[in-house]
Design a protein around this nucleic acid. Structure first.
Lengths: 153, 153
DNA sequence: CTTTCAATTGCAAGCGAATTGCAACTTGGC
DNA sequence: GCCAAGTTGCAATTCGCTTGCAATTGAAAG
């Protein structure tokens, strides 16, 4: 499944590690540009969702802010990133493995903005109940938790 | 609890119906201004959360947009309205009875934006589990559902 | 009912997130 | 290497929301 390249593991130029995403882009007829690679690489290093502005702060030399927004739209369309809304007016993005089950949520501290990943979710039966009650199809949801982290209590 | 006034029931000047909210405002030392009354009255007539811009469209004669934003801040602070986020970048507001349990969510059609109220929610035990797992306190959540309504399928 | 003053409003300017038009520049197929 | 389509950077723009300030108004006190 993974490519046959393996360099010494590590920093710049991670074609091997990123091939999961670059392959998708290319086979859909999109170009592998320097800005796109830089954004993918940076997203890949994150533990938590990150804003476009934060990405631009790191990549201002290699990539214009507008291009970051455009790249993120592309990745969203192709389901290569997932968008989260933490309640401040700024979108956050997380790289997801194509086809992988990445369903999760976040707990955000309302005082210091610390983020903790949350794997728990309500049972699927609830969505099914809702589908029956409302007649809606293809139901998804957005769910985030807020509270006071141990340090801020 | 309710006042002794009763007119013929109806439109303008619903001091009786709105007293639940106006009383709170006044006893907290806030003025009962024309803009505030107009906003309250309009909110009271809504079945679904409404945006500040939508309110202003109806009330442009009686109330500046900035005042609507300011009124909404006030009502939020006093827990007289609840704010919802439907994923477009625009806040929506719903009047809630002071002290009443208004916990609910929404199902929003991703194509035509139809809104359906959803009373179901996941069991409280989930929040408790999360509190134990994460160490967070005073946990709240934001949850909205998205899907295709019967007409749009 | 008038006075009085702090709270509130309207207006216009301002801010940050996100989008867009366009000329210049890459990417990747030939 | 060449070329066309896709992409980028830049600057200007939109959109939701906020803010400073002078003018107005609600309501408490006289």
């Amino acid at each position: 499944m993974s490519s046959t390249e393996h360099h010494c593991c590590g920093h710049a130029h991670d074609r091997g590690i990123l091939s999961e995403w670059t392959a998708h882009l290319q086979s859909a007829g999109h170009k592998l540009t320097k800005p796109r690679l830089a954004v993918l690489e940076l997203l890949h290093r994150q533990e938590h969702p990150i804003t476009n502005r934060e990405i631009h702060a790191e990549l201002s030399a290699e990539c214009d802010l507008a291009s970051i927004y455009r790249t993120m739209h592309l990745l969203l369309e192709m389901d290569l990133v997932q968008q989260f809304d933490f309640g401040d007016g700024t979108a956050r993005f997380e790289l997801v493995s194509p086809g992988g089950d990445s369903h999760h949520h976040h707990m955000i501290c309302t005082r210091c903005s610390t983020v903790v990943e949350v794997d728990h979710c309500f049972p699927d039966s609830l969505s099914e109940t809702l589908a029956r009650h409302t007649g809606f199809k293809k139901i998804t949801h957005k769910l985030e938790f807020f509270g006071l982290c141990p340090d801020c209590q």
